[in-house]
C-alpha cells in the first residue's frame, strides 16, 4: 500500500484544468521562460535549467478556454506575478476579479464578488494541487523531478521553439494532460496551451515579462490575502 511521493502527487488524471492550478502553472512557466536563450540549440535539460528565476517577474496574460459545456469560448485577462524563492500570484481582472497566490506551503484564493476565500495547506496529497507541485519543480529547474510525471520533448525551428510536456501513466480511460509551451527563438514564451484529458482546451497569450526586484502591487495583494 506504499505510495511513492511521486504517485501520491499524481492522483487520477492530474486535473490540470482546475483554474487555480492552471493559473499557477501559467505564472511559473511564463516567469521562468522569459529567460530562455538560444533555445534553438538547447536541450530540454538546458532549457529547464534556465527556467530558474532570480528576480520578481510580472506578466500580463489573456486566458482563453474552449470547453465542451460552453457554447462559446471564455476569456479572461489579468496579471501574473512571481517572486523567488516561493511566491506566485495570479490576479484575474476581467471578467471578474479573482486572486490566487501561493507562498511557501500556503495557498490563498479570494473571489470578492462571491466573498469566497480559501486558505489551505499546500497539500501535496491533493490531486487538485498536483500541477503546483510540478511547477514548483520547474522553478527549481529540476528536470529529473519533472520526468517522473511527464515526458518532455523539445522541437526547434527557425520560427519558434516548442516544449512539449505529456503526462505519463494517465488514467486508462482517458488520454493524459498535454502542455505545449512556445516562444520565438531566443525569446521568452509567448503562449501556453493545455489540452485536458476530456478534450477541453485552455490557452494563454503572454505579454513580454517585466522584471523588477520588487513589485508593490504584488506585496499589497499578498498582504491583503494573508490578512483576510
Amino acid at each position: 500500500m506504499a505510495k511513492p511521493f511521486g504517485l501520491m502527487c499524481k492522483k487520477a488524471n492530474f486535473p490540470m484544468y482546475s483554474k487555480k492550478f492552471r493559473s499557477i502553472l501559467l505564472t511559473t512557466l511564463a516567469m521562468i521562460l522569459y529567460s530562455i536563450q538560444l533555445i534553438a540549440s538547447d536541450t530540454v535539460e538546458s532549457v529547464i535549467a534556465r527556467m530558474k528565476t532570480q528576480t520578481a517577474t510580472k506578466i500580463a496574460y489573456t486566458e482563453t478556454r474552449d470547453m465542451g459545456l460552453f457554447s462559446d469560448t471564455w476569456q479572461a485577462t489579468g496579471v501574473l506575478y512571481a517572486q523567488p524563492p516561493n511566491i506566485m500570484l495570479k490576479q484575474q481582472q476581467q471578467p471578474t476579479v479573482e486572486i490566487m497566490a501561493i507562498e511557501a506551503d500556503q495557498l490563498y484564493y479570494h473571489k470578492p464578488a462571491t466573498d469566497t476565500f480559501h486558505q489551505m495547506q499546500f497539500d501535496e496529497n491533493n490531486e487538485m494541487m498536483a500541477s503546483i507541485i510540478i511547477f514548483k519543480g520547474l522553478m527549481t529547474g529540476d528536470s529529473h523531478y519533472l520526468r517522473q510525471f511527464y515526458t518532455l520533448s523539445i522541437k526547434n525551428s527557425a520560427q519558434n521553439w516548442s516544449l512539449l510536456m505529456e503526462e505519463k501513466n494517465p488514467d486508462s480511460e482517458q488520454q493524459g494532460l498535454k502542455i505545449i509551451i512556445q516562444g520565438m527563438p531566443e525569446q521568452a514564451a509567448h503562449s501556453i496551451s493545455i489540452t485536458l484529458p476530456d478534450g477541453d482546451e485552455e490557452s494563454y497569450a503572454l505579454s513580454p515579462p517585466e522584471h523588477n526586484p520588487y513589485f508593490k502591487q504584488l506585496n499589497s495583494l499578498l498582504n491583503a490575502l494573508k490578512s483576510h
Binding site: 484544468y17 482546475s18 483554474k19 492550478f21 459545456l69 460552453f70 484564493y109 476530456d198
Partner: peptide
C-alpha cells in the same frame, strides 16, 4: 465550471 472543482463538476453536470 470555471472553479478549481471544475473537473468534478463537469462529470456531474453532463
Amino acid at each position: 465550471l470555471l472553479s478549481p472543482q471544475a473537473s468534478v463538476i463537469k462529470k456531474i453536470a453532463v
